[in-house]
Write a protein that binds this DNA or RNA. Structure first.
Lengths: 353, 353
DNA sequence: GCAGGTCCCGTAAACGTTTACGACGATAAG
DNA sequence: CTTATCGTCGTAAACGTTTACGGGACCTGC
């Protein structure tokens, strides 16, 4: 005999009472509750999840959907572990498990979500790398499964989402470059249709418009969000006849490849070309020149994602009275040498034409 | 009405027959089997996992235990996503899910495993970052839960494990350095008691012994496996009175910090100091100088981990007739500039003392 | 015509929980 | 003393599946 039945037998109590005692229901005396708790602790009793799920219709698990393929997410491969960590911090407080559900690379993302839903293996979902028009969101909306999106989408519906302020950051970075005297500013964005690339480009365009600079499509470098992509971006940069004097990277890791390509060509990053990147890690300050970048704590992103999700789930909403979360998270500027050195150089160039 | 019952009702068949048809049991006619299959596909029936788990006593899920904290694993934070990807590739073929179970950072790892086992939420486990003496393994061994360890451990028991050949790699790298004329070779290993650090150091020591070079404990740099740790290693290196001419890094990412620290001091990596690192990513070849490193496909590590685990699980062993896996995976040398340039420099130094 | 075998299929129990419902005793109110 | 109220607890059904068991229909060979 196992589980709650064993516990009940040992204590000469009915299993119903044991269950009520463990779940903190009101109709059980203080004394028996104490006895049950003690006995449960003694035998290391942990409720069987399958039995509970079957009866209650939930699973005590939250799914995290991402795409395992490097470079397709617009983040590269170091992004998610930090986020997982934050998500798990919150979930563990509620005895919820994190189920990571990478979309197999030969599978259609929409079909992936459909299967997950059908199996009813999670109570809620975190879906990342949202596309500009995302049929997964449509699907989840119709199904009524609680979920939160990391990254906005133009797909309508009342669901919580979080996003990094890539528009703002692209705008600020552009402002910063313009203020330093740059006129031709290149921008490296993911080559796929992930939404953040679009958002990022918008911020860049609007900033250009503010400063009366015409948008030149040639300056948009569509590459992978990796070292490789950075190298590629450097390559394209160097091959332009009217070479840009600054370049914005959407992902920090790209700086490694970009630096290399520029150095190969004898072009010094931070001096001949200003570089700005995004995303947290200690990487930026160990590059040479140190990278000016916009930082955000990935763990905190994970924490907020989890909180936004729980806030939208009836069973947990009381702990997270934040309603429907639509939040754009700001990033923090960390000045490095990769563009500040250039400021004077650009200034000089401006001063004596 | 839902699930299999609904299906049975629609077809005027008993639910038992429907279940048998779906599960490919023998005692069901070809005709009814076809009808059931068709109807199931039509209504998009997917068996309820909770019901099935309760009855069968399994969960169709595999857990992956790792420690979320950056720097404590000996790998840093980009390691696992690649491995996950490979694991998932194999699991999805068997309709198994991957449940990622990061050990909360304020939690005891052993207690973490104990809880997971008690909840019976997975059919098998992959446990990473094994310690030299690992009580988690002891626990799992006693409980008889199928698991595979990534990284050997001195804890006894008959369980499958995989390991990267850090001993061999440290030995080869040392040989290589000695052949290039180096005598004082520093080595950077994780500051915690993760087993691979120990293994790595052993390979290094044995290689030294082969060449008749005395082991100098001062040359062992115990730092975090991160950019930061690399910087720290560089710092310690520079502060030595009799400075080593070569340094082995256990983790590629450390090279970034090391390079920076050396450059700050006007010491050129690859020329004044030879550097060798480990682990796959495109990082190595985008550093300057390109890093000589030992490479392995993380995805393939994941694939092998999953296969080794399934081979030890009765229900899946038939597909993976490999028995109990004890395998040390070799890494492949990728020559870069970070030590080859030095070969001649060291040679010169050797030649005219 | 009868024993034995084969092929399908239905019945019902079981997995471990939660929870609606009712029962019991004790106490309080009338 | 009766009746209502309250606090506590046991009973049993339900969640969706799988599977051991048995039974009916049909065929075979004597």
């Amino acid at each position: 005999m196992k589980g709650i039945k064993r516990l009940a037998q040992d204590l000469n109590i009915s299993i119903g009472t044991v269950s009520r005692a463990l779940n903190g229901k009101s109709d059980v005396s203080q004394e028996t509750r104490a006895r049950v708790m003690e006995a449960a602790a003694a035998m290391g009793y942990v409720p069987n999840q399958a039995g509970r799920s079957l009866r209650k219709g939930n699973t005590n698990a939250i799914g995290f959907i991402y795409e395992g393929e490097v470079g397709t997410t617009g983040h590269g491969d170091t992004f998610f572990l930090g986020v997982f960590s934050g998500v798990q911090d919150v979930l563990s407080r509620h005895h919820l498990d994190l189920v990571v559900l990478p979309c197999p690379r030969d599978d259609d993302p929409t079909e992936h979500v459909r299967r997950i839903m059908a199996r009813r293996m999670v109570d809620g979902l975190i879906v990342s790398a949202t596309r500009r028009k995302d049929s997964r969101i449509e699907l989840l909306n119709r199904a009524g499964i609680p979920f939160v999106a990391l990254g906005r989408s133009s797909t309508p519906g009342t669901y919580p989402w979080l996003d990094l302020d890539f528009a703002g950051v692209a705008g600020q970075a552009t402002d910063r470059m313009v203020a330093a005297g740059h006129r031709r500013i290149a921008v490296a964005v993911p080559s796929n249709d992930v939404n953040l690339g679009f958002v990022y480009l918008e911020g860049y365009k609007q900033a250009l418009a503010r400063h009366g600079i015409a948008f030149d499509p040639e300056l948009v470098l569509r590459v992978a969000s990796s070292e490789e992509g950075g190298y590629q971006a450097g390559h394209e940069l160097l091959s332009m006849d009217n070479r840009p004097t600054a370049v914005l990277l959407i992902y920090e890791l790209m700086a490694i490849g970009l630096y290399r390509r520029l150095n190969e060509a004898g072009v010094r990053p931070g001096r001949d070309v200003a570089v700005v990147g995004f995303r947290e890690s200690s990487l930026s300050r160990f590059l040479s020149p140190t990278l000016t970048s916009y930082r955000i704590s990935l763990r905190s992103v994970g924490v907020m994602l989890a909180e936004a999700l729980l806030a939208s789930m009836p069973d947990y909403a009381e702990h997270y009275p934040m309603g429907l979360v639509h939040r754009v998270l700001p990033l923090e500027l960390v000045e490095g040498e990769s563009d500040t050195t250039f400021v004077s150089a650009a200034g000089r160039r401006e001063r004596d034409p």
